[in-house]
Design a protein around this nucleic acid. Structure first.
Lengths: 131, 131, 131, 131
DNA sequence: GTGGTCTAGACCACG
DNA sequence: GTGGTCTAGACCACA
């Protein structure tokens, strides 16, 4: 599992880290029960501040992706099969502005769906291949 | 065209306003050539500061959704038929973290696609019905 | 002499009008002693406000391009052969930021000169042909 | 790199600052990757408001001259070798009124070209000499 | 009346 | 300490 942080991105480092870990879980390179490097180790590996890693881990814990033990050891959690209701409510609100802009920019529904399917399949295929 | 601003949201006011207007254009309630309220009027209507509205308008102008003139109100612009390449490149990056999380939360691809289609059709249907 | 005002331009109307008239003089379509339409007439012709025309005429008078008589009749003036010193001092300052940006954008000196020559020759050729 | 702001000029402060920085880049006193003072520092140095500097920096960022990050100062960017098409289209329109007035004021084409060359060479020579 | 510019001062997110 | 956001209030150019 290789995490890439783009220091030149406009996106905050801690959300980048969060997204990278979620992507890792989605792609299967991070499996249930697996443990992440300690906050200190991760910060050193990525060359970022300890507090930044801490913030990312905290959010992931709060969202149910991680369970923190001993203040430093982070274990990947398996999410319940039924999707969280609050997430189901949040999801369309996240998508709406994106789709609105895509629609204005004359991207057709099939084109958009194709892009989504591509991303989905990128997760599903990797599940089988990665360790 | 009713705009709603959520003062408790963590999302900046000016991006909320931007998104609302893009949604309005997508939904057809704002048509090409139509004019938006003046920055002062809009600010008063929403109960926010003039400069915040100005920033939203400026971004929309920069993105080609609006044209602003010193002597006229902001006018809704028609976007070119061909989607902007830079947007096509940005789009998957916007979607990837959202889909990754959805995938982790056991939302299936068909479910996700259905949500997208719902949003798409909400724009397409309103185009015909709204004034 | 046809004047074109672009109501959608970001440039103020009165400076557009001023520039158009200067271009007309440069191109020879407006000759020394020729009289421009009255402020009222010009405003009506262009569909702009009387004050806007007045402002343009005033600036042109101040710059020596026009002589105003009877408050309404504007005569094209011939400029002295020796260039105004204050203009010679102002000119490089006007050009410097433009050339600086062109240079940054990798436009070579010959390219730039070619563009200038094109514009120059557009004035010189028209002098002979226009009425 | 010394920046001069003329408070008595009719030109807006933020465009003055913008032009000064572009000139600095053209002259080579600001090199790729170099960082500009923070908005606060620059504002203090020039005796102007923080937001005014911010606006100048934002425009420069939008035009590709600077890259701004939340956690770093503004960094000078290298522009692509191929000139922007939109700039090539804008350039003659910027030059036309200036050349028209110069032509009216009996400045010959060679004189004008000489002035342009002077400005160009002022950039090219400094590139080698400055640190 | 419109938007544009500028100032002053505040709070927050980020690292 | 950085830039980002937001507010409040002022003056000016434009038409």
């Amino acid at each position: 599992m290789i995490l890439k942080i783009d220091f030149d991105s406009e996106q905050p480092l801690y959300t980048q880290l969060r997204d990278q870990i979620v992507k890792g879980i989605a792609a299967g390179s991070l499996k249930e029960g697996e443990s992440l490097p300690s906050v200190r180790q991760m910060a050193e590996d990525l060359g970022i501040n300890l507090h930044t890693v801490n913030k990312a881990y905290s959010i992931l814990e709060q969202d149910g992706f991680l369970a923190m033990y001993q203040r430093k050891n982070a274990l990947v959690q398996k999410l319940p099969l039924k999707p969280d209701k609050s997430f189901l409510k949040k999801l369309p609100n996240q998508l709406k502005p994106i789709i609105a802009e895509a629609y204005c920019r004359n991207i057709s529904e099939p084109e958009f769906i194709a892009i989504c399917k591509d991303i989905f399949s990128s997760f599903e295929s990797e599940v089988e291949n990665e360790s």
